[in-house]
C-alpha cells in the first residue's frame, strides 16, 4: 500500500516526497480509519449482539466512560500503528519533517473523531456484526474517498470538492500531511485544526445523542 500510494504521489513529485506524503495519508486515511472507526463500529455491534452493552449500561459505568474506554483502546492501537507504519516508512526512505507535538495532536483529534463517528454509526446502524460492513461501506468508505485518501481533491468535480470541505477526513489528511510531509506549522494549518476541534466536539455529541435515542427507542440490545 505504501508503494502504491508512494507511486501515485511521486507521479507529480519525487519518489522520496511521494513516500513522505504517502506515509501520512496511509496512516490517517487507511490505518486509523479502519482500526478506529471500523474497530469502534465493530466493538459496539459485538457488544449489542452479545447483550453486554445493555449490561454495561446497568452498571455505574457512564456512557462517557464507555466512550473514553473506546478512545483509550483505539489510541493504543493507533500508537502501535504509528510505530509500525513509520518504521516501514523510514525503512523504505520516507521522512517525517514537522513537529512531533503538532502531529501527535492531529492524530489524537483524528482518533477522537473516528471513534465518535464509529460510536454514532455503531449505535445507529450496526445492531449485528454483519451490519458493520454495510455501515462502513455505505457511509464510511464514501467519506474516505471524499477525504482525498485515494484521489487528490484537486482532480475532483467542484461539488465533490465542496463535500470534501465538510468531510473531517479530508482535514485530517491535509493537516497530518502538512505537518509530516511539508513541515507546516500551526499558523499554516489553523483552518484545518479549527475544523478538527469543532468536528471532534460534534462527533462526541452525536455519539452520545445516538445512545440516548437508542435508549428512548429501547433498542440498546
Amino acid at each position: 500500500m505504501m508503494l502504491l500510494f508512494g507511486l501515485v504521489y511521486a507521479h507529480n513529485a519525487t519518489m522520496r516526497d511521494g513516500l513522505d506524503a504517502a506515509a501520512a495519508g496511509i496512516l490517517i486515511g487507511a490505518a486509523l480509519f479502519f482500526s478506529c472507526l471500523g474497530g469502534t463500529v465493530a466493538a459496539i455491534a459485538a457488544e449489542r449482539e452479545r447483550g453486554t452493552l445493555q449490561r454495561l449500561f446497568t452498571t455505574p459505568l457512564s456512557p462517557a466512560a464507555y466512550f473514553s474506554g473506546l478512545v483509550m483502546s483505539q489510541l493504543l492501537l493507533a500508537i502501535l500503528q504509528v510505530v509500525v507504519l513509520y518504521s516501514i516508512a523510514f525503512y523504505v526512505g520516507a521522512q517525517y519533517h514537522g513537529s512531533f507535538l503538532l502531529g501527535g495532536v492531529i492524530l489524537l483529534l483524528s482518533v477522537f473523531i473516528y471513534v465518535g463517528m464509529g460510536f454514532f454509526l455503531g449505535m445507529r446502524f450496526a445492531k449485528r456484526s454483519e451490519e458493520v460492513v454495510v455501515a462502513l461501506s455505505a457511509i464510511g468508505v464514501p467519506l474516505l474517498v471524499l477525504g482525498g485518501t485515494f484521489f487528490p481533491l484537486e482532480i475532483m468535480p467542484r461539488a465533490m470538492q465542496f463535500v470534501a470541505q465538510i468531510n473531517p477526513i479530508s482535514h485530517m489528511n491535509q493537516a497530518f500531511k502538512g505537518v509530516a510531509a511539508y513541515d507546516m506549522g500551526l499558523s499554516e494549518l489553523r483552518f484545518e485544526m479549527t475544523f478538527l476541534v469543532i468536528f471532534c466536539v460534534i462527533s462526541m455529541v452525536l455519539g452520545t445523542q445516538s445512545f440516548r435515542r437508542l435508549s428512548i427507542e429501547g433498542q440498546i440490545r
Binding site: R50, G51, T52, R55, T58, T59, P60, R221
Partner: peptide, 15 residues
C-alpha cells in the same frame, strides 16, 4: 445505581 441489578433474559457475557 449500584444497588440495582438486572439480569436480562438473554445471557450477556464476554465469550
Amino acid at each position: 445505581r449500584s444497588l440495582v441489578a438486572v439480569c436480562s433474559q438473554r445471557s450477556s457475557l464476554y465469550p
